[in-house]
């Protein structure tokens, strides 16, 4: 899209990083700490990040130069462009690199509060993309005081800080994001084309398939839009599941949000009974956003 007018922004939040990008850009999750942003199938910029245990401030420049060099991009340290000045307010350590080729421009920043090291590389092709990338980068933040937000595609999920990303997959029509929280496992699913899926399979059956376990006690509400499944085995059964290295307690829920042709589901499994407050929070904080 190469219009001259700036676009409406939408937040993207993934694995501790949050930023606002134009609505028509696609955010591609390339790795747990790597996001690529595309405009009309062309990469516009990408960011990589990771937590750094210790930063030696006196060696910052030397260290960042060596990291940048490892990227294999032909550029050298330069003054931060005016349009990226707000970045310097957010990050205590910031180093910008500029090359002869505009695709070699980028930088490294470090947040003192959460010890996150972020690398970004601009891959802009037009002036508008350059402006929009600058806006997106200026909105970059790496720590959230109110739990951790996950917002990608059309889903939004807020989880407590002690939930860590375990796995994810973005297949056509099915997005799965898994987390670990202590000894519990948690999986969030978003399915598209709810109408045609429900025409082929009832909600309980879809939940059973997503959970991938037998023996769930399934119940569906009177509106046929919410289905819950649970497994709370007896002590003897618990032993059996533990011997099979399975988590005995499972709580799952699938629902169809009104006004969207989507299905949302969570599947929580644990060696101990799951706290009802946590389950309510998962249900309330997992949403479709446009």
């Amino acid at each position: 899209m190469n219009n001259t007018a700036p676009s409406r922004l939408r937040p993207i939040a993934w694995n501790g990083i949050r930023l606002n990008v134009p609505n028509h850009w696609e955010a591609i999750v390339s790795a747990p700490g790597h996001l690529i942003f595309e405009d009309d199938f062309n990469p516009v910029f990408h960011i990589r990040w990771s937590h750094l245990s210790e930063l030696r401030p006196h060696k910052w420049q030397q260290q960042s130069d060596s990291w940048w060099e490892k990227l294999g991009v032909n550029s050298s340290p330069a003054t931060l462009p005016v349009e990226l000045k707000p970045l310097a307010d957010t990050f205590t350590h910031l180093r910008y690199y500029k090359g002869k080729d505009p695709l070699a421009n980028g930088g490294i920043c470090y947040c003192d509060s959460c010890h996150t090291l972020i690398l970004f590389q601009q891959l802009n092709h037009t002036n508008l993309q350059e402006q929009e990338t600058a806006k997106a980068l200026n909105s970059l933040s790496c720590h959230d005081l109110d739990g951790s937000l996950w917002q990608i595609q059309d889903i939004s999920l807020r989880l407590p800080e002690d939930h860590f990303l375990k796995d994810y997959s973005f297949k056509a029509g099915l997005t799965r994001i898994s987390f670990t929280a202590g000894s519990s496992n948690l999986q969030f699913c978003r399915l598209s084309q709810a109408k045609s899926r429900l025409a082929a399979q009832p909600l309980p059956q879809i939940l059973q398939t997503l959970a991938g376990v037998k023996g769930l006690n399934l119940s569906i509400d009177s509106t046929n839009t919410v289905c819950t499944g649970q497994r709370t085995p007896s002590v003897a059964r618990q032993l059996l599941y533990r011997m099979r290295k399975e988590k005995p307690f499972i709580q799952a829920k699938i629902w169809r949000p009104p006004e969207y042709d989507r299905l949302l589901a969570y599947i929580a499994s644990s060696p101990h009974p799951l706290a009802p407050t946590d389950l309510i929070s998962y249900y309330e904080n997992f949403k479709i956003v446009e």
Partner: peptide
């Protein structure tokens, strides 16, 4: 943190 991991080129780097 393993910096090499952060900078490493994985399969997903292709796009």
């Amino acid at each position: 943190m393993k910096i090499s991991k952060l900078l490493s080129k994985n399969k997903a780097d292709k796009p």
